[in-house]
Design a protein around this nucleic acid. Structure first.
Lengths: 135, 135
DNA sequence: TTAAACTCTGTAGTTAAGTACAGAGTTTAT
DNA sequence: ATAAACTCTGTACTTAACTACAGAGTTTAA
């Protein structure tokens, strides 16, 4: 036996708690391998990547529910996948836009700070408020 | 008296629950105007924008704690603001990158769906995986 | 070969971010 | 002038996403 990937190894490799892995199994966002008659469950290696993806996507503001939907797109049947993928893509475009605005504001703030201390009034708030649609 | 902005109007204008506004006040992310001896609290108009900013930033994956930090940058004193703003900016750059990758993957998925149903194996997961370094 | 480290099942606790509501006072519309 | 709609204070409930732990079984390293 080389080195069976048990839950602890999976968790450590993905940088999460063992309990988190179990939680993801419970809500069905990652598969739970069958329990062998004796011994521990063994996980496929790509489970680690799947968990990493989940954590990354969370940092981008997606809920586990939304992440589940994204993941399903990968192995769905072409029919509705296309439509739903297009929707997601447009949403993400909007998100990228928002982030760019925020980024530029921060940049301006940094520059202003360097040249002068003219702390007029916060430009950060103005960035993301109002209908920001220049998609 | 023209039309004093009371909490209900603020909430409706920002598209959130009155209780949410109170919650934000409780945690100090928006200011609570002083209670006048008689009558209701009156809010400055820019409270609405501040709440909109908060909601927007949340969709981008920021916690209220992080949003509070972003907002503080606006009226902070130049010294550390510059450093912290630069940190945030770099983080956001990373986020933009991740989103672009995800976006492109979705795009490919859509295209592949249009031409052929060669559902090899989910390319979505591969998009955001890789060095998850949480410093 | 046995103690340490791990896994399993199940249940319970925690934190962030709200949401609901009771009971009292205040405004406003009719 | 009074009912409807709103606000205030305070407390309690909810949901998502974990996190902890007990008590039993299983593996592995010294």
């Amino acid at each position: 036996m080389a080195k069976p990937l048990t839950i602890g190894k999976i968790a450590r490799a993905a940088g999460v708690n063992v309990e988190t892995v179990r939680y993801y199994q419970r809500i069905g966002i990652i598969a739970e391998p069958p329990k062998p008659v004796e011994g521990y469950r063994v996980y496929p290696a790509d489970t680690v990547e799947r968990i990493c993806f989940i954590k990354r996507a969370q940092q981008l503001g997606f809920s586990l529910q939304e992440i589940a939907e994204l993941l399903e797109l990968g192995d769905g049947h072409c029919h509705d996948v296309q439509l739903r993928a297009a929707e997601k893509r447009d949403l993400i475009d909007q998100q990228i836009n928002d982030l760019k605005n925020l980024r530029n504001t921060l940049d301006k703030l940094i520059r202003a700070c360097q040249s002068d201390n003219d702390t007029a009034h916060c430009p950060i708030v103005e960035t993301l408020t109002g209908d920001n649609q220049d998609a």
